[in-house]
Computed example of a mutant assay.
Amino acid sequence: MTKTWFITGTSSGFGRGLTERLLERGDRVAATLRRPEVLDGLRAAHGDRLWVGRLDVTDTAQVKRVVDDAFAALGTIDVVVNNAGFAVFASVEEASDEQIRQVIDTNLVGSISVIRAALPHLRAQGHGRILQISTAGGQTTYPNFGYYHASKWGVEGFCETVAKEIEPFGIGLTIVEPGATPTGFGAALATAPIMPEYDATPAGDVRRALASGDFPLLNDPDKIVGAILDLVDGGEVPLRLPLGPDTYRDVRASLAARLAEHDSHRAVAESVSLDEFAAR
């Protein structure tokens, strides 16, 4: 059965890969991006099964207008994919105020805006799926990605809340967490002037690993796209979908360490309750 998808950030990476695969198999796609001309070839090949909208997700008014237009043009939209993203590769002191705002406005506020704009339509039609593209860095951290992590941890918390609120309406939400993948995203990372004070720190180590090619990109982007399609086609709606051996390994280690630390503070946590609740 064919489906209709709304996808942000379709010029490259997972967004472009999803768009191409979906069109090849006969689905309809509302593809949004800042430069619509990038998809002229696909539009010529697939005709009215590809609806293209100019969208900068940092423009909240534009997000609402484009989402409304896509639903009006296509009717039912079965799956909304929040994929647009931006990252700055720098220690927390090195990034500029403008870079920090762009990361947060794109990854966090932009994703929130798309979900908020889509929900009235999804509720009205009584079904739908939201896929939030996150990363292993939505559950664990790496030096030089502090602001990227801030945005992804934030959007994961938001989406976990949304998933609980929208389930009664027949709408599912899954946070997709790919690991390091050669999609071109790394080459598009914004950078900042390097502070020598950080050279002998973990931030410097990661910078050198990326520069030397020793930071492995373990995952196949086509297989990740396939896994996303399999998830939707299979009807399963997990809250999170880890994709990649690095995601599985790093997130598991982070969760285990956090749980161990959490348990180590049980006594002091329970010691501060009001006396009338202390025995419960």
Score class of each variant (00 low, 15 high):
residue 1 M to P: 13
residue 9 G to D: 02
residue 13 G to N: 09
residue 13 G to E: 05
residue 19 T to R: 07
residue 19 T to S: 13
residue 20 E to H: 09
residue 26 G to S: 07
residue 26 G to C: 10
residue 27 D to T: 10
residue 28 R to W: 02
residue 30 A to S: 11
residue 35 R to M: 01
residue 40 D to W: 06
residue 44 A to Q: 15
residue 48 D to T: 12
residue 59 D to N: 14
residue 60 T to P: 02
residue 62 Q to P: 07
residue 66 V to H: 08
residue 67 V to Y: 07
residue 71 F to E: 02
residue 71 F to W: 08
residue 77 I to L: 02
residue 78 D to S: 05
residue 80 V to A: 02
residue 90 A to Y: 04
residue 90 A to L: 03
residue 104 I to Y: 07
residue 112 I to Q: 13
residue 115 I to D: 05
residue 116 R to S: 13
residue 118 A to W: 01
residue 119 L to Q: 13
residue 119 L to T: 09
residue 121 H to D: 02
residue 129 R to C: 01
residue 131 L to W: 04
residue 131 L to P: 10
residue 132 Q to M: 10
residue 132 Q to C: 01
residue 139 Q to E: 14
residue 145 F to W: 11
residue 147 Y to K: 08
residue 148 Y to W: 03
residue 154 G to Q: 12
residue 155 V to T: 12
residue 158 F to P: 10
residue 162 V to G: 07
residue 167 E to G: 09
residue 168 P to M: 03
residue 173 L to A: 06
residue 174 T to H: 08
residue 174 T to S: 12
residue 178 P to E: 02
residue 178 P to R: 04
residue 180 A to K: 07
residue 181 T to M: 04
residue 181 T to L: 01
residue 185 F to E: 05
residue 186 G to R: 09
residue 191 T to F: 00
residue 192 A to K: 11
residue 193 P to E: 00
residue 195 M to Q: 12
residue 195 M to S: 13
residue 199 D to S: 11
residue 204 G to D: 03
residue 205 D to M: 10
residue 205 D to W: 06
residue 208 R to A: 14
residue 214 D to R: 12
residue 216 P to Q: 03
residue 220 D to I: 01
residue 225 V to F: 05
residue 226 G to Y: 02
residue 227 A to R: 15
residue 241 L to M: 13
residue 242 P to W: 10
residue 243 L to V: 00
residue 246 D to Q: 03
residue 246 D to L: 02
residue 246 D to G: 07
residue 253 A to L: 11
residue 256 A to Q: 15
residue 258 R to I: 00
residue 266 R to T: 14
residue 268 V to M: 13
residue 270 E to R: 15
residue 270 E to S: 11
residue 272 V to N: 03
residue 274 L to Q: 13
